[in-house]
Design a protein around this nucleic acid. Sequence first.
RNA 1: GCCGCCUUCGUCUAGUGGCUAGGACGUCGCCCUCUCACGGCGGAAACACGGGUCCGAUUCCCGUAGGCGGUACCA
Length: 482
Amino acid sequence: MKTIRVRFAPSPTGMLHIGGLRTALFNWLWARKNGGQFILRIEDTDRERTVKGAVENIIEALEWYGLSIDEGPIFQSERKALYTQYVDRLLGQGSAYRCFCTAERLAEVRKIHEVNNKATKYDGLCRSLSEEEVQKKVNAGEPYVVRLKVPHDGVTSFDDHIYGKVSVENSNVDDQVLLKSDGFPTYHLANVVDDHEMKISHVIRAEEWLPSTPKHILLYKAFGWDLPDFAHIPMVLGPDKAKLSKRHGAKPALEYRDAGYLAEAVINFIALLGWNPKTEQEFFSLNELIREFDLKKINKASAVFNIEKLNWMNSRYINQESSGSAEKLADRINTFFAGADGSEKYSKKEIMKILPAAASRMTTLADFEEEARYITDMSIRYDPSLLIPKKGDKGESMRALESAQALLESVAEQEFTQKHLEGAFTGLIAQEHFTNNTMLWPVRVALTKRAQSPGVFEYLEILGKEESIRRVKSALQSLQKK
RNA sequence: GCCGCCUUCGUCUAGUGGCUAGGACGUCGCCCUCUCACGGCGGAAACACGGGUCCGAUUCCCGUAGGCGGUACCA
């Protein structure tokens, strides 16, 4: 069996976004599953579109999401000599030709074809240039590109791992430009040459490449090379059902990190976009994904990226971690809020204290801020009428707060725990003829300063005796004034 | 325009020549309850359309429509 070697080959034209990340993920999974190599290749043959910092962003993103790179990054822009060498070979054997047509003429040809309801491909004018004519133009310094000489008849077909047999008539395949007039190769040439040179076994890329695969196959044939396996994966669409792209507001993959999503959750979620294990399992660790992943289980239809489900999944991951390994979650929150200079916004100790009450209410790590606010920020103001439950009245709430204050004052510091306080309050409610509602509501609001919050007993323990009493007292005062 | 690919609840999807077409998110209702969240239970919600083939098609074939992608000296 041949060695599995796959590559993720983005062009550095911007930040890596979710669609690209998923392509990388599927490649990476296939490599890991088969004990192969995952190679990063940067397709930077278009010097104008290359964006500074894009490569760094791509690498940082792959790293953060846990997709380790075995080889690379390899930059196509540094391999120019290799491509020209291969172009010369094609030229020499008559599989390609020089084309001197200007951009203006090309546009004209395209327009004419379009109005005649014909495919808008190059008309092949320069294909019939004699050697002397070519030589003369070259000597005269006329700029030219090199095009692939695509056969006029026949059919090119291939067997895609996901889409099955795909066939295109050669008459519909354009004489693709292989080498641009600036001497740089186009994607098509560089891609084929590199995949061959780098011994890529599986070309796993987005479905948008399906239509140009015949061109690539014709190139492989012209070189006399063996074909790699092709697996085109369905596209990830935005909510508008259009290809995910910067234009359509596709967020860079790392923005999910910055918004407080967990790498595992995002990976889990995007893995399920176009792939599924054929079971009803929906939570997968990276290792489980490696085990279950199979090119055969990828479907053909494109998938819409639905943030709602990601949100749900992320909150589930947070919840799960808070009960399983809270320390780890606390570390994450700690780093998430840490300043660029490493300064701490919330200490781990502080986080651990708040977390039990907060976790189930958080969708992203960023939500911790809101949970912590009501504990750390002493200056929060609220409407005292909030202290009165819907069906209650002012007098009853004041009586409740007074009783609660007395109770809290009587509880020893070391007994100020959720469990003990719950018992104590239950007794108090029965004894003083309160109900859970008339007692617990005002106390909870006194402590948390908001209508919606975690439970009273959780909060009491978090705040501690002194602060709890202080808040109950101040709530009483504000009710009195009202 | 031309070429290619695709089509099961709003979204991600399972599935079979004969099923009450399954799960998940979201949504709605109920329960839990000091409120919110979590959790539990339940509901509404889909086989694009038209022809075939077949005893029988959501499933197979052909069309149509729709969607998406490609159609660059971008990738």
